[in-house]
Design a protein around this nucleic acid. Structure first.
Lengths: 167, 167
DNA sequence: CTTGGAATGTCAACAAGGCTGACTTAAACT
DNA sequence: AGTTTAAGTCAGCCTTGTTGACATTCCAAG
């Protein structure tokens, strides 16, 4: 099992414990880079990574309900409510009572919220664009394939749901 | 700039803002999966993700100094010291005074520490192994290439330094 | 019409794990 | 001898996650 060999004796180098360990380290270091630029921007403001995540997914799925956002982010409503409330107070997010079901709140970005979201995402995308360009299209395809395989099934559903109705 | 076209007019689909946005979402959801299994194990014990990270890198680089570990993890010594102290008290980590420079402390896993590290890493690797197998070797190579391109230069150095003297 | 359940919001308390700043100790360097 | 460096410690703060309890509002089924 820790040999990385099939019954046929064919060596699957990329499945050795050592390779997997290096993959985990790459994931760790890369995620740090992934979040570094938005984090730096948010440092000055009184916001954090949690605010960025909420902004991102409200931008992606405008009009989403609080419950839906909860499932996407995987946090408790109390935790989300804290960041959401400050952003509503600060005029970045608008919460509209649902028309069909008035219990639900639908979330939208205001112009100010859109501006901040754009700023954060631009910073993040700049790094990703450079990484994608360095690695090339085939590598990017593989990157996406492995990431998707690594998700929990629940999260994979969310991921695909978000992609519907876009490109 | 948000068109994803070169000066030659060649469309680089994988560099559109929309593709990059989806990549960011994939990264977010995948990282959740990446940490989910060890987190579940640590839930029962009185440890967290920070302990896992320390265990992992002490395992990877036995005899590392505190300062070195600090740089790898990218946290303050106070933050690291908190998790390190509990694990030393609990007999998972051993701190030996340096022979050449007695100011330094060199960190090693005890047998108990190695056992826990193994347990956590096995859980994490099981998911990665499945993801790697699903995606295939070429995808894995691309995955690694993009992750590496995404790191901060400082972290990329650390990453390579760790790989030296291994496979 | 009433009642049960669902969606949301809120309050309080707590924990993990980051951070800063100040300070000590011991060892090493110059 | 004086300065710098590695490590550890204490105190306090912030963000962001957690539970649990409870209020409100509304839909829908009986």
């Amino acid at each position: 099992m820790s040999e990385g060999r099939t019954a046929q004796g064919e060596t699957l180098l990329y499945l050795t414990d050592e390779q997997l360990r290096q993959g985990a380290e790459a994931m760790f270091f890369a995620y740090r880079g992934f979040t570094a630029d938005p984090d730096r921007i948010l440092d000055g403001l009184c916001y954090g990574r949690a605010h960025h995540r909420a902004l991102h997914f409200i931008h992606t799925a405008p009009g989403t309900t609080v419950n839906n956002l909860l499932n996407i982010l995987g946090v408790t409503k109390q935790s989300l409510n804290r960041v959401l409330r400050t952003m509503i107070e600060d005029g970045l997010v608008e919460s509209r009572v649902g028309r069909v079901d008035k219990r639900e709140r639908h979330l939208y970005l205001t112009d100010a919220g859109d501006t901040l979201e754009r700023q954060l995402s631009d910073a993040q995308r700049m790094r990703m664009r450079a990484a994608y360009r360095d690695a090339g299209p085939e590598a990017v395809a593989g990157f996406r394939r492995v990431l998707e395989a690594m998700m929990d099934p629940e999260m994979r559903k969310q991921y695909h749901r978000l992609r519907e109705g876009r490109g």
